[in-house]
């Protein structure tokens, strides 16, 4: 088997630029979350945004198509932009004790793939590790994947849809007082 050396045609260069823009956008977003700039983070969502984290259940291989709940069923997060704003506002009240003292979080985003681009919107898949430490020795880790739909707005990008699929069924943490 031989592997053809890629030739830097114009279209591959364009694809790399888009890939770079998308990755930079996701890193920027992660940095906002890790610096607790929640209101700025929510501003990255479009007004019609849908942010959803289903429940996951251990199912047999035969029934694996039922592993995740769907919109309209129970979920951990099923948010429109107003709900995201309410959550951000709640963190800012100064009395949201689950985050006072604040947790330390690190959002690591990897395996970024643009699976569709119609010129207006992009379907972007990524994996993440969210590492959270709290108080003296509380540690939570969430690994999973995200399916985003990003929209080109002005010179940048905005999040239209984010579906978050965690790699846990019975959650090992006492809460999800964070964003993914």
């Amino acid at each position: 088997m031989t592997i053809e050396a890629p030739s830097a045609t114009q279209s591959t260069v364009d694809a790399m630029v888009v890939q770079h823009q998308v990755e930079q956008f996701l890193y920027h977003e992660a940095a906002l979350l890790d610096s607790h700039s929640y209101e700025e983070w929510v501003a990255l969502f479009t007004d019609d945004a849908h942010y959803f984290m289903p429940l996951r259940r251990t199912m047999t291989r035969r029934q694996l198509h039922l592993e995740f709940t769907k919109p309209g069923e129970m979920a951990y997060f099923d948010e429109n932009k107003t709900w995201l704003e309410t959550r951000a506002a709640k963190f800012a009240t100064g009395t949201s004790w689950a985050e006072d003292p604040p947790s330390r979080t690190r959002h690591l985003v990897t395996n970024v793939r643009i699976v569709k681009d119609d010129g207006h919107e992009l379907a972007v898949h990524s994996n993440f590790l969210l590492y959270r430490t709290r108080l003296k020795n509380d540690v939570d880790q969430w690994v999973g994947r995200r399916e985003d739909r990003l929209r080109r707005v002005g010179t940048g990008l905005a999040i239209v849809k984010r579906f978050i699929y965690l790699d846990q069924t019975v959650l090992q943490s006492g809460n999800l007082s964070t964003f993914f």
Binding site: L55, V170, G174
Partner: peptide
Amino acid sequence: VPGVQKFTVQ
């Protein structure tokens, strides 16, 4: 409603 939330508190 389909889906039982389950989580762990110390």
